[in-house]
Amino acid sequence: MAQQTVVAERAALQVEPSWRARLRAITTPAFFIGPALLLILIFFFIPVILTILISLTDMSVATISDINFVGLKNYERIWRSRTTMKILKNTFIYVGFTLTLFNVGMALILSLITTHIPERVGTTFRTFWLLPRITPSVIYAIMWTWFTADAPYGIVNQFLSPFGITPKNWLNAQPWLVVIAANGFVGTSFGMIIFTSAIHAIPVDYLRAALVDGASTLQRIRYVILPMIRWPILFVVTYQTLSLLASFEYILLLTDGGPGFYTTEVWSLYAYHRALSNYFGNVQFGFGAALAAILVIIGVIASVVYLRVFRFSEMVAEPKIEVL
């Protein structure tokens, strides 16, 4: 009864809005959201549409003055090619391991450790971890190349040879290990910064309360810290997945997709190789565009899955209890 009264009162209070108010209701959000929408339109939707259109042609350097519509032929070639599954598998290996071991895993461990030790030491430690991030990609990749080079050049061999391990070119012998580590040391710093600031933002009362309740450090992490930084974890996982799916610069510089039969060739690098890089000058824009279009689809699917798994809508919903 009381509830009905409240509803009736609210209804009575509602006045038909003026046309100005209605216009403002449309223009104000449009004003704020417009620039972002424009950017998305120019830099995402239009390129995606162009990519899809190009993927339906035989466009290459040699045919650029006489482009033919070939329908889904490029997609059919991708489907039938024996390299497709290999490259797809490589992509999952690369994204999966780099993400779990470094971009989220190592980042989380580092941020937890550096927030549980004296502030100055933690800050210094984190600063050192930023070094790979601020080193130019080419220099960083060259450092890895020489670091893992065969004897007598590589430092890795100098460390391992006293243990009886035969010197070798580690980049060729264990390409995935090197590629994931090289990417991971750069990727870790991003998550580390986000997680560290999220941990610092946890009201200290919660942590003290846990201490008073007798929680151990691990319990405090498990039951207080991790649940409270769920949103930053979702953000880092989603962002870094999409970022890794599209990134290939370190693989290009380190192994160029090799050695051997597409050993470290990931989807984005394959698209780059086919669309933009050909040793004898005739790049395949159409085929490369088809590969890129598939990558966009994979990215969109991954985003939707993440948003569902992490229940993104719940996290951005208005709080059920209004504080103050």
Binding site: S60, V61, A62, T63, I64, S65, F280, G281, N282
Partner: peptide
């Protein structure tokens, strides 16, 4: 060959 076909 490719660059002449492309008109470059």
């Amino acid at each position: 060959a490719p660059w002449s076909e492309a008109g470059y």
